[in-house]
Amino acid sequence: MRRAEIITALILGLFSLYFMWKSGEPPSWNPDVGRFNNIGFDDSGTPGGGFWPFWLGMIMFGCCLWIGVNWFLKKSPASKSTEPFLDEFGKKNLFAVSFGLLSFLILIHVIGFYGAILVFLIYYIRFVGRHSWSATLGISLAIPILGFFFFDVAMRIVLPKGYSEPLFIPLYDLFL
């Protein structure tokens, strides 16, 4: 946990610096303006577009330094902890969920939302949760069907169908 605390502070500190750098970016249509020209007031007393985010980034960076000092002095609970950041269950579980969600997201682009929901629910309920096939199939089929009637038919929010689009055309003819 102690190592995770300082690594996170480091990553967030770097993000804060990147944020400050991006805040000072000149407008793309005017390359003559120098970087960081927009973080203060212009001649007419108007604060530039980078004013607000730059100084926020500065405070964020200051906070990361403060967190680092607290870590060094072992003042925060995480910096004192000798517990691992993730135990064996945590690692296994994080992998199972990450794999499932990543596959879900990719499948949306291929077979659309409803197909991806079906596959994801079968994976999670049957293989992660180890429930019976009847429960798995019952829930995995019911949710996309209810989803279609709620979103596509009732709310007129058409979810992406990917390559499964032709399968839905008869349903559109019937319900829309």
Binding site: F104, I108, I125, G129, I139, G147, I157, P160
Partner: peptide, 22 residues
């Protein structure tokens, strides 16, 4: 283990429904 995947599904569908943007 049934509720959590349903929540994941609702989160993804809900976000898409709100902004129609992957």
């Amino acid at each position: 283990t049934i509720l959590s995947p349903i929540i994941f599904v609702l989160s993804l569908v809900g976000t898409y429904a709100a902004y129609m943007n992957m």
